[in-house]
Amino acid sequence: MERIASKTIAFNGKFFGAGPTGVHKVAEELIAATDALIAGQAANGMDYAVVARDGVEVPPYRHIPCVRERPWARRMHKIAWEQFYLPLASRKGFILNLCNLGPLLHRNSATLIHDAQVYSAPESYSLSFRLWYKFLFFFIGKRHKIIFTVSEYSKRELVHYGVARADKIVVVHNGCDHVLQIRPDDRQIAVLDLDRRRYVVALANTQKHKNIGVLLKAFAGEPLRDVPLVLFGGATRADFESLGHAVPPNVRFTGRIADAELVGLLANAGALAFPSLTEGFGLPPLEAMALGCPVVAAPFGALPEVCGNAALYTDPLSPDAWRLNILSVLNDEAVRQSLISAGHRQAGGFTWKRAARDLFETVKAVNG
């Protein structure tokens, strides 16, 4: 490949080809939305490119070319590739890292750090993971020109933990309108034998701060005995039980499912339950709102900032409170319709076009 030219904004494409995560989804949507903005707006002679590993699939963007690694870099570990090859290949350009980490050697960079949870929720991560992220955050926050983050809450946390100064951090909220472009696939409703509007969806995630244990306790109680709790994602019943959770029989696990299947589940659910104790943003509640699914959430982290008055907030430590509020959403049509209407209004303010424009303008100002 040719090296990145001066004035070129190089997206760090290390995440392409990796397993699906929320962070990777945000990166994909931001690049796609930036691609849609570029036509006629590449002021000051700036160009964009994605730098990616050889052999990984990268979407065919209209205005953002993909440049591949040179043959001698193909055997490099992904960390070495990001820390050494990427800054070498992009040394005349500006590197934009969208997945928390980036090369320390390249000061002419911006990095999107989604949250400070390695500090605020250390029990959710391994020691090696925490140490590596804290090491990189320390230097990224000092060396890179811009630190982006996804909420005012995350900005306060990053300042609190000394990652970067407040005047260096720019908030760019995520969008959620991508779910409206996905045709729902209802197969999971049949596979799991669900009745529309009579089941609740939540994350299958064992990280402590996700707090799914409170839902397991809530659904073990008599009032919700006949209401399925559908957990989507990679964690299994055995994973929860190995951590000491009692998983009641009305909990059903989807495993990893396609985006279209998740959209189908959310669009037909009685509610999304989101009891997280901390979130840098909290994309699933907004996705649910956009699809007309009522949201019951904990009032912690960035969730009040993101969900506004469109969620039914619930004490994250009280199974009884979750049981009561979930039943209210399922059984009281006035409550349900109020949450759906408020949810549509709230989700409508979070678009990827707006996010990409905020990102685009900030980077353009630094490189003008």
Rank of each mutant, 00 (worst) to 15 (best):
E2D: 13
A5D: 13
K7N: 15
T8V: 13
F11V: 14
N12W: 07
G13E: 02
G13M: 01
G13D: 04
K14P: 00
F15H: 12
G19L: 12
G19R: 14
K25M: 12
V26P: 00
A27V: 07
E29P: 05
L30M: 15
M46S: 09
Y48R: 05
A52I: 03
V56H: 08
V58D: 03
Y61C: 09
R62I: 10
A73D: 09
R74T: 10
M76K: 10
I79N: 08
A80S: 14
E82G: 05
F94H: 08
F94M: 05
L101R: 12
L101Q: 12
G102E: 02
P103K: 07
P103N: 11
H114P: 01
H114N: 11
H114S: 06
D115G: 09
D115A: 11
A116E: 03
E123R: 13
E123C: 01
S128E: 12
L131M: 14
F138W: 12
F138P: 00
F139Q: 13
I146R: 12
I147P: 00
F148K: 01
V150Y: 03
S151N: 08
E152Y: 08
S154V: 01
E157D: 15
L158D: 06
V159Q: 07
G162M: 08
A164F: 05
I169S: 01
V171G: 03
V172T: 15
N174E: 15
G175K: 00
D177G: 09
H178N: 15
V179K: 04
Q181W: 01
P184L: 08
D186I: 05
A190L: 11
L192S: 05
D193R: 14
D193M: 04
L194R: 02
D195E: 15
R196V: 15
R197I: 02
V200E: 00
A202W: 02
A204V: 05
N205Q: 12
T206W: 02
N211S: 11
G213S: 14
G213V: 07
A218L: 06
A220W: 05
P223R: 14
L224N: 04
L224Q: 04
L231R: 01
G233K: 05
A235D: 15
D239F: 03
H245C: 12
P248N: 06
P249N: 11
P249Y: 02
N250T: 04
V251S: 00
R252M: 06
T254S: 14
G255A: 10
I257R: 05
I257M: 07
I257E: 01
A258I: 04
E261R: 08
V263G: 05
L266A: 08
L266I: 11
A267T: 12
L272W: 03
A273P: 02
F274T: 01
F274H: 09
S276G: 10
F281M: 06
F281R: 01
G282F: 04
P284Y: 06
P285H: 07
G292S: 11
G292V: 09
V296G: 00
E305K: 10
E305F: 10
E305P: 07
E305Q: 11
N309R: 12
N309S: 14
N309A: 13
D315M: 08
W322R: 02
R323H: 09
I326M: 04
R336Y: 14
Q337S: 13
S338C: 09
L339Q: 06
A342Q: 13
H344D: 01
T351W: 05
T351E: 06
W352I: 03
K353R: 15
R354F: 07
R354E: 14
A355Y: 03
D358E: 15
L359A: 06
L359Q: 07
E361I: 04
V363Y: 00
A365G: 07
